[in-house]
């Protein structure tokens, strides 16, 4: 029983599971393409072969953990993952809509919120500084085609 709990939190088990998952996905969706033969490979040949191999690697990794669980996964801090991911998704989604300045402000504020030390007193000036600085460097100096004002503001 104790061994099983070790297995469930084992790094190898979860790595194996991820590999297994990706392997199966690639083999499964590979069925839509032509297989061909080893001599004249179709588009499905290479991914199916590799997918099967990855599934196999995943199974071995998982099987091993029932004998010897190996290192345990340390605790995960999901909130940090969520803030950083959201910050980027939001930035990309809003960029054309509200322009580069405001979307950087959003990106920085959401991103900075992930830190324990977060305080509005430093985050707001930082966000504004980075936003205006980026607009000057990237848009005005380097001429990257980024909208300063987005569609919502007629830019």
């Amino acid at each position: 029983m104790k061994n099983l709990r070790g297995t469930l939190s084992s790094k190898d088990l979860w790595s194996g599971l991820i590999f297994f998952f990706f392997g199966v996905v690639f083999v499964y969706f590979g069925r839509n393409y032509q297989m061909g033969t080893a001599m004249r490979m179709g588009p499905a040949y290479f991914p199916t072969l590799l997918g099967a191999l990855l599934t196999f690697v995943g199974i071995i990794l998982m099987a091993k953990t029932f004998i010897k669980p190996g290192d345990k996964v340390e605790s995960m801090r999901y909130s940090k993952v969520i803030y950083i991911t959201l910050a980027n998704l939001f930035f990309a989604f809003m960029l054309r809509r509200i322009g580069v300045v405001l979307s950087i402000v959003l990106l920085v504020l959401i991103g900075a919120y992930a830190s324990q030390k977060f305080k509005w007193s430093y985050a707001m000036p930082l966000a504004l500084g980075l936003a205006i600085g980026s607009a000057i460097i990237f848009v005005l100096l380097l001429h990257l085609p980024l909208p300063i004002l987005g569609q919502w503001f007629g830019g």
């Binding site: 990309a92 950087i104 991103g111 900075a112 030390k117 990257l144 085609p145």
Partner: peptide, 25 residues
């Protein structure tokens, strides 16, 4: 806590401008 928001900005803008696509971000 002051450095990483700047890194976020450079990553996001850099990746976006690769082919001007939200998708890459």
């Amino acid at each position: 806590h002051l450095l990483y928001p700047a890194i976020l900005v450079f990553c996001a803008i850099g990746v976006f401008t690769l082919s001007n696509s939200e998708f890459d971000v």
